[in-house]
Design a protein around this nucleic acid. Sequence first.
RNA 1: GUGGCUGUAGCUCAAUUGGUUAGAGCACCGGUCUGUGGCACCGGGGGUUGCGGGUUCAAUUCCCGUCAGCCACCCCA
Length: 422
Amino acid sequence: MSRGPLPGFRDFYPEQLAERAYITGVWRDIARRFAFVEYDGPPLETLELYTRKSGEEIVGQLYNFTDKGDREVALRPEMTPTLARMVAAKANALRKPVRWFSIPQLFRYERQQKGRLREHFQLNVDILGEPGVTADAELLAVAIEIMRAYGLGPKDVRARVSDRRLLNALLTSAGVKADQLGPVYAAIDKLGREPLEVTREKWLKATGDEDVAIRLEQTILQKDFGKLRATPEMGADVHTAMEEFGKYLELLDALGVREWVDFDLSIVRGLAYYTGTVFELFDASGEFRAICGGGRYDDLLDAIGGVSMPALGFGMGDVVIGELLRARGLMRRNEIGPDYWIASDSEKLLSKVMQVASRVRAAGKSAEYSLRLQTLSRQMKTASSAGAREVIIVAADEAVAVKNLADGSEKRLTLNELIASL
RNA sequence: GUGGCUGUAGCUCAAUUGGUUAGAGCACCGGUCUGUGGCACCGGGGGUUGCGGGUUCAAUUCCCGUCAGCCACCCCA
């Protein structure tokens, strides 16, 4: 009998759950500040919901099985199909734009490694029903403000942004044919993970034209949007896409997050999925996987729910965030211990201790006390190690002492005064 | 799924060229300091050295398998 969880799954002892609660608490807090509303869906869906979006290949990465009613089902590997299904079902009834977020537990049957388990919690923030670039700016700002809330700054985390429409226009302008886009994209995606020489060869092989490959490289590696924009003779499609993207950057500035953002055309992400802006958040040192990824997926609702509606969103998992916060000494825990520990120095006072605990609890505060008789010294020790904020020491009369365990200060008052002050 | 590295108390690590009852710190439990926690001191529980085989008089140490973890590939949340 194994004592540990299944590979890739985690046990959350109270300390770990307190850390998870901290991480997800920040998500919820910031998402609400941006006026997103929380929703949830079932952890189990039909297998078809995922194959319709990603094809049969995805089945190899799913926890799927046949249920007792002969239905092909899978534990959800991502939230977006569920969201698309839910929104499509009530598309006409929902006030647009829809601004929803969720914190689902997701599952993937893959070999685990650092930053990547078979199960994780992921914040999903989505905007549906708004085609304009203001929504794109608003969305990225949520992700960045979450980083800020953790105590991270623009020197710790960078947002790399690109736009599928801009990249497509640029590639076409550079001479890449439509049927060459697939392999060209695949090579772009590998940039940074393999030597530049290898990528060059792939581009050359994909396009069959050395001049095209060279223009391609000059374009993709240009990290200065202003310079790229100033390049002459790129065609009307490029011009239009440039205008939109420039607006996007301006709006990010208005939202106060521009200094976190880097223009980077090598950000590709799911090819069949994203249709417009795409972005990823990385720690600046590059030692972790992507913290967050998202973008615009205007065609997905139609593909899944048969309802045409523009949409965009991002996902942010708890695993990489946790590793990053721990590495930077920024991990916090939500408080575990009780507000009050009730203590006494006499066994005769046990029932009084319990009465006080009862009144404290009735006042809405948490209270604990030693279930076994202990010396006052021992009770103090226990209170301290339990993480109690204050100890209430009761006596035979109405006087109580309230000691703050953090700073050692102590005040004396009557029981009624204490309860009234809660 | 493929390949490489690793595996000793809850955690971090020890254990002389394989040598006999596998140790320490932290953590946990208890005690002393006898109305006030963190400190100090004392004591206690806890390991079939991941598991299963093999070689040997003798295996934590060498070999094989297996499981688990880490890393890379694949793929992306």
